[in-house]
Structure formats: structure tokens, C-alpha cells
């Protein structure tokens, strides 16, 4: 991403980006997926070369792996969508002048969410409230990932050049128009960076959902450990790592594409 930003600033004003310039970032963007594909290929070849016993064979069917991976993606996606739906409006609210008094309090609450280990929270939900499964896992993930998005939303909004806001206000934009046309678009890069962090956190933390029957790639890891099948754990771990890297990479591309032009 840094590379593409530099391209934008360096090119002399008025010249259209050269053809090569437009495509160059995409070549860089393809490198990581290729590497990840090679890692998966290596894993597949390695697992294929091993003698599998019945437990391993049952855990490592294409169907099981596909299901757990899809479940993992679902956990990550649902929790991240909820985090964004919760944290961005909250961040907007907390940067309005009339909420200044509550800012400290709410940030403390959000901090607690991140300070408490997710595994503890999941255990608490399970033991104290008999709350298990997919949605219990989502609650844990959301609590953990709210803070980066909330904090980045606030930092992003507060970092908008006051002169831009004064000019907007002075031209007769209403408070809501200033927010929608100036503050939010200008805060987008910082907010997206927060969302990207939340996504990566969620991919990793979603492995814990396995402990409360929430599914996901963690199931493979946990099953491998409890049955002493190293190959199963390894598959789950590698798949999680590949997924995390891929999500981070895609989020990085989204940041580039969604960033307002002219910044």
C-alpha cells in the first residue's frame, strides 16, 4: 500500500498515471496469493503422502475441511460486520461535541472488552449462561474486536483538518452534511485500517470458537490435540494461518481501492 501511495504523490501533477503505473500495484498484489497457494499445495502433497488412520481420514476429508473453513469464514465475517455496525456509529457519536462527557467511560468499557482474554469470556458465557455455539462465539469475537475499530473511527474523525471543516461549515454545509461529505470520507483510510485489524484479530480468535462448539478451523486443531493426531492439528493451523494472511491481504487491497482519490 505504501508503494501505491508513493506512486500517487510522486507523479507530476496533471499527468495521467502511466499504463504501467496503473497495473504495477496489481502485480505486487498477486504475489502473496501465489505464495499462499503454494503453501496449500505443499500441505496437500504432504498430507497425501502420509498413511492416514481412520480418525485422521475422517477429519481430513475435503468435505469436513471445506465445512470447517466455511464456518470459520462465516464466524469472521459475521463478527466483523457486527463490529463495524457497532463501533463506527459509536465512534461517530463519541466524536460529536455533545458526547464529550461520556467519551472516557465508553472507551474504558471498550478497553475492558479487549483486555479480557476471549477464551475467558467464551468460558464465562458457556459456564455461567449456558450460552454455546456459533452466536456465543460471535459475542466473544465482537467484544474483542470492537476496540480497534472504535478507536480508529475516533482517531480518523478527529484527525480531519479543522480548516477543512471550518471551510465546509462556513460555506453553509449543515452538521450532517459536514459529517457525510467531509468527515467520514476523509476518515475512511484510518477507519479501514481499524477494520482490517479487527478482521485479522477475528480470523485468529475464531479458532477458539471450537471450545464452545462454535465450529471453525479451530475444530481441527482441538480435535487433533485431543486425539493426539498431529497431522490434523497441523492442517487446521496452516489453514488458519493461510486464511489470516489472505484476509489481511484482501483487506489491504480494499483499503487501496476504497481510499478516496486525492488523498
Amino acid at each position: 500500500m505504501t508503494a501505491s501511495t508513493d506512486w500517487a504523490t510522486v507523479r507530476p501533477p496533471g499527468t495521467d498515471p502511466a499504463r504501467g503505473g496503473r497495473w504495477w500495484p496489481w502485480i505486487g498484489r498477486l504475489a502473496l496469493p501465489v505464495v499462499l497457494a503454494l503453501v496449500l499445495l505443499a500441505l496437500w502433497l504432504y498430507v497425501g503422502s502420509q498413511e492416514l488412520d481412520s480418525i485422521e481420514a475422517r477429519s481430513l476429508t475435503a468435505e469436513t475441511i471445506g465445512e470447517t473453513a466455511a464456518r470459520h469464514v462465516a464466524l469472521t465475517a459475521v463478527s466483523t460486520v457486527l463490529v463495524v455496525a457497532l463501533a463506527v456509529p459509536l465512534g461517530i457519536l463519541l466524536t460529536r461535541p455533545f458526547t464529550r462527557r461520556y467519551r472516557g467511560l465508553l472507551l474504558t468499557v471498550a478497553n475492558i472488552g479487549q483486555a479480557v482474554p476471549t477464551i475467558g469470556l467464551l468460558a464465562l458465557l458457556a459456564v455461567a449462561f449456558f450460552f454455546l455455539g456459533f452466536w456465543a462465539a460471535v459475542v466473544g469475537l465482537v467484544a474483542y474486536a470492537v476496540l480497534p475499530v472504535l478507536r480508529n473511527t475516533m482517531v480518523g474523525l478527529e484527525g480531519v483538518d479543522p480548516a477543512v471543516l471550518e471551510a465546509g461549515k462556513g460555506m453553509g454545509l449543515s452538521g450532517r452534511q459536514v459529517l457525510r461529505r467531509l468527515e467520514l470520507p476523509l476518515a475512511v483510510p484510518v477507519i479501514l485500517a481499524g477494520i482490517r485489524t479487527a478482521l485479522v484479530i477475528n480470523v485468529g480468535t475464531a479458532t477458539l470458537a471450537a471450545y464452545i462448539n462454535g465450529g471453525g478451523l479451530g475444530t481441527l486443531i482441538v480435535a487433533g490435540f485431543s486425539t493426539n493426531r498431529f497431522l490434523v492439528s497441523l492442517t487446521g493451523a496452516v489453514l488458519t494461518a493461510v486464511l489470516a494472511l489472505l484476509v489481511d491481504h484482501l483487506a489491504g487491497i480494499a483499503e487501496d481501492v476504497l481510499k478516496p482519490k486525492g488523498l
Partner: peptide, 16 residues
């Protein structure tokens, strides 16, 4: 404010 032009030192052009 829509009836009054406003120019400030920092200009405050909308960068995006």
C-alpha cells in the same frame, strides 16, 4: 452562510 463567501488562511479545500 450560503449567501456569504468565506475564505480562510488555511484555505480548507476539500482534499478528496
Amino acid at each position: 452562510r450560503r449567501r456569504i463567501g468565506y475564505v480562510i488562511q488555511q484555505i480548507g479545500l476539500f482534499p478528496h
